[in-house]
Design a protein around this nucleic acid. Structure first.
Length: 563
RNA sequence: GUCGCAAUAGCUCAGCUGGAUAGAGCAACGGUCUUCUAAACCGUAGGUCGAGGGUUCGAAUCUCUCUUGCGACACCA
């Protein structure tokens, strides 16, 4: 039986109708220290109602309450503190984890509903930077969180594979580039052209006209322009795949911006037939005054489409294809206002899933407090950071565990894990001022810390050999074990919390709490000691290992058995 | 200028729908490996929770004002 309902029932009985069960359970809180029990009821709220001092009320409740099933219930000042029956509670918890395994914490809230997730979305011909890391790993983890809550996530890489930058790129390539150069080092060369374009265009504004002309040709289906575009796209994708491989992230669809080229006219037509389009300074806009927002521009004064047009086409496509339970966008917080506009336009159009649009924003990555920008060359290449981190992991292995088999593989798991975990452990809205040293920390509250706890647990299980692990015998006397049990029991709640807040960091924090509790236990208890409690301790270690691995999996981080 | 997000220990951050002495991790200092991996554990030190008002039995948490920082504010994405 769930302990919070047990506590609520006991209180409801003792309070004799002074508070409803819902009111009681809403007021229950988790005390800060073990000395204050496992769940507590503050008597303050009843003081006015009963015209008594809260201390007195707490004492009266304790006198009346039915204590069966609890270790004890006692009044401490104005609080009623409940101490759970530890052996019963741990038996139930371990039983659940061991029988359900990695499925422990799984729920059915989403009822199988589709959730397309717009994520990662790098721009063709530009390298992936730390900014893309955020959208990629947050989106990936949210997909896992959604699945854990019974939804069906659809990870969509909304590639930036269309737009005026291709005009610039083609101009740059034709002026300063060559086929051999691009083949040798695709993205770097393409970026070079792009950066040079922006440098030279300051003194030669006619370059802009050329670029506009090339993009116009591309949109008109010009063969040469199209071939170059397709080639740049292909070369870029090859490099992106390398990064996704390292991160272990896969996608269900790669419907980039170009995918919607033939779906834009319908959007314009729909808006027109709904009488939503207005002319404003030569451009076509949707008035959003009733939403208290600026108008949303759909067509430029030269008739060209915009990002907005494309995003509406995307939402429409997702609406028809998936009938989404949510339509999620993992995009930086600087686009919050923009997505409010998109949502408002969709609502005006009466698109069924308009109110399902969820923008999941995240904070900005800066360097020395400044925004990253490909043009200015102020950029941190994701690939480089991952490689540095793996190299660092390799070094650590050489120092700490030189006999480790498959060092290369483990170094990848640990190095990449450190970066991914580092991105996910804090509130996604926090801005991050990038610092390579901070990223390459493997001690304290880091991915490797959690991985290490898992590896230690696995190591013990290996040494224990082929023993039957079950939760039958649960008499663990180690005080540190209790903290572990409580964390394990808390996991299903954390899974739901992470969904409600769209916060992978809830899972990361859980994994840290569990790893910390386990490391403490490990340091103070002789787990493999040959005594009567050994099977119970092994059941605990097995449960910890399962849950550390599972919480890391939700984050998109690997959990090596040895490191 | 308007709107949004933020401000907690030297640094990076936790603090759940307001509740019992404000917590971690780094960094500093001091302990712990003949015993399950020391990427670990234990301890010491470190804070008028940006400022001021309000609501409340009770505010880091809710509300208002101000200060500071970042971001957004139609022909980029």
């Amino acid at each position: 039986m769930d302990y919070s309902t047990k506590v609520t029932d006991a209180l409801a009985g003792a309070l004799d109708g002074e508070l409803s069960a819902d009111d009681i359970s809403a007021k229950l809180e988790t005390p800060k220290t073990d000395a204050q029990g496992d769940l507590a009821f503050p008597a303050f709220t009843l003081a006015k109602q009963l015209h008594q001092a809260p201390q007195q009320i707490a004492a009266d409740i304790v006198a009346k309450i039915d204590q069966t099933g609890f270790e004890k219930v006692e009044a401490m000042g104005p609080y009623v503190n409940f101490f759970f029956d530890k052996s019963l509670f741990s038996a139930e918890t371990l039983e659940a984890v061991l029988t359900e395994g990695a499925d422990y914490g799984q729920n059915d809230r989403g009822d199988g509903g589709n959730v397309p997730i717009d994520m990662s979305s790098p721009n063709i011909a530009k390298p992936m930077s730390m900014g893309h890391l955020r959208s990629t790993v947050i989106g990936n983890s949210l997909a896992n969180i959604l699945a854990k809550n019974g939804y069906h996530p659809i990870k969509d890489n909304h590639l930036g594979d269309w737009g005026t930058q291709f005009g610039k790129l083609i101009v740059g390539y034709k002026k300063w580039g060559s086929e051999e150069d691009v083949k040798k080092d695709p993205i770097n060369k393409l970026v070079e052209y792009y950066v040079r374009f922006h440098k030279e265009d300051v003194e030669h504004p006619e370059l802009d006209d050329e670029a506009r002309e090339w993009f116009r040709k591309l949109e008109a289906g010009d063969q040469e322009a199209h071939d170059l575009w397709a080639w740049f796209r292909e070369e870029s994708l090859k490099e992106f795949e390398g990064v996704y491989d390292k991160l272990g992230v896969t996608f269900d669809t790669y419907n980039g911006e170009a995918f919607y080229n033939d779906k834009l006219q319908e959007v314009v037509d729909l808006l027109k037939s709904d009488n939503l389009l207005q002319e404003s300074q030569g451009a076509q806009v949707v008035d959003l005054e009733k939403y208290d927002m600026n108008p949303a521009m759909i067509l430029k004064s030269d008739g060209a489409t915009l990002y907005m047009t494309r995003d509406i086409a995307t939402a429409l496509y997702r609406d028809r294809t998936y009938h989404p339970a949510m339509n999620m966008y993992v995009v930086g917080s600087e686009q919050s206002y923009y997505f409010k506009q998109v949502k408002a336009v969709l609502e005006e159009m009466g698109i069924p899933s308009a109110d399902k649009l969820v923008h999941v924003p995240f904070g900005l990555i800066t360097v020395n407090g400044k925004k990253l920008s490909t043009r200015s060359g102020r950029i941190i290449l994701l690939n480089d950071v991952l490689d540095d981190s793996v190299a660092m992991a390799k070094k650590q292995i050489a120092e700490k565990n030189p006999d480790l088999p498959n060092k290369e593989e483990v170094a990848k798991q640990v190095g990449v894990g450190a970066i991914v975990f580092g991105d996910l452990k804090n509130d996604r809205m926090n801005n991050i001022d990038f610092n390579l040293e901070d990223q390459l920390k493997f001690e304290g509250e880091t991915g490797p810390y959690v991985q290490y706890a898992h590896a230690r647990a696995e190591s013990i299980l290996r040494k224990a050999g082929d023993v039957e692990i079950s939760a039958n015998d649960n008499q663990i006397s180690d005080p540190e074990a209790w903290d572990i049990i409580k964390e394990l029991a808390d996991f299903p709640r954390v899974v739901e919390l992470a969904l409600d807040e769209f916060e992978p960091s809830d899972i990361a924090k859980f994994s840290l709490r569990l790893a910390k509790a386990f490391n403490k236990y490990y340091a103070h208890s002789k787990i493999l000691a040959d005594d009567a409690e050994r099977p119970a301790r092994l059941a605990l270690v097995k449960s910890v290992s399962i849950m550390l691995k599972e919480s890391l999996r939700i984050l998109g981080v690997q959990a090596p058995d040895e490191m």
